[in-house]
Amino acid sequence: MSRLAKLRADPEDEGLRVEEEIKSLLREGRIREAQDLLASAGDLVPSGSKLREILGPPRITVSDLKDVDRTPEYNWLNEHWVEHQGKWVAVVGDSLVASSSSLKSLLAQIDPLHFDRKPLIHHLI
């Protein structure tokens, strides 16, 4: 008897049982099996379930956001990574504007600053 068939055989709270079974598979790292069980569960797991969202496809929409060509920032990263290795950096054009060993600190440094173009934030581990 399949995993789902066993669950359907129990008249009590089938939906909850299926959801718990899927979560159990996730806890074991069996993500693909969790997705397969969810796909075969039909109405037992409601369409608005958070589980369906977590295991479901991405939602894609158009954005008005635009960025500039970051070639100068990429060149800076390639040329200066050794001296800033291990740091989080914020780079604007060919200039470093902030550097820190923690992202939190870096964000605090750049927060009050104003830039013509947004800084590219990166971690040089």
Partner: peptide, 21 residues
Amino acid sequence: LLRLPLTLIAEEGTSLNVEAT
């Protein structure tokens, strides 16, 4: 596993918002 939003940013054409796990 968490559901999070990000944007693939375009320099040419249209950027995309992607809400993914």
